[in-house]
Amino acid sequence: MTSMQAVPTPDATDDEVPILQLAAVRAGYGRIDVLHGIDLELRAGEVFALLGPNGAGKSTTLAVCSGQITPSTGGMFLCGRDVTGVAPDALARAGVCLIPEGRGIFPNLNVLENLRMATFTGHSFSQVLDLAFAQFPRLGERRKQTAGTLSGGEQQMLSMARALATEPAVLLIDELSMGLAPIIVEELYEHVRRIAASGLSILIVEQFAHEILGLADRAGIMLHGRLLHTGPPASIADELADAYLGAEHETPAAHPSQ
């Protein structure tokens, strides 16, 4: 599995193999099919925003990318290598890191113990702590506090800190904003912006579309388990309100990826 260690290449060009790719993925929970054939490419160093209304399949897409759900058909590729059906822990060690929806923390462990869990991907504890507290000094002040008693924003920071401390190749972020006040969401996205500037490849799922279009390189709209439009954020913005609050069904057939 160690040969899988994927290294992000910041100067990626279009003809390079995408760092993460889904090809014709169909997947779902148990018997509930959610994704009806997703083709998606995340290029090295880019921020891709996946937008769309509830139930469109955004979180399921991330669950596939992180290995929690095995596609029923279709494949997933990491730097061109087939990783379809690889277990989530193996993917995590290979550099794919998910910040899950809600709070991706262990509520009954304290901050330090939560960060300790990040060391399974091969980093020393002191490295992890340095990285985490440098990014999020507020966590350093609360290192002994039980994670479940932190505020919502702090919990989300802890979740991000743990993810970043593993120095992942690909960061998957699922609805950072869920259940948080807008002002805190803004603060969290400041952090995301900084991380993105460092050249990490990020696939981010959001409902609050306007927050994210500013920092994404490309974006796509999902509807009914299909990826409809992909393109630069500006071209997406207009489609959004329609997609969320109802307009005509789009036919998914014709959507060249650019």
């Binding site: 209304p53 904003s177 807008p182 969401v185 959001e206 409902q207 609050f208 579309a209 306007h210 927050e211 279009l213 500013g214 500006a234 913005a237 207009d238 959004l240 309100a241 969320y244 609050l245 109802g246």
Partner: peptide, 20 residues
């Protein structure tokens, strides 16, 4: 009414400050 309601748009799309 719902489709035109700005608070609904906000709930679904987030704060519209950077909106076009």
């Amino acid at each position: 009414e719902i489709q035109a309601d700005p608070s609904v748009q906000r709930a679904y799309l987030g704060t519209a400050k950077s909106a076009s």
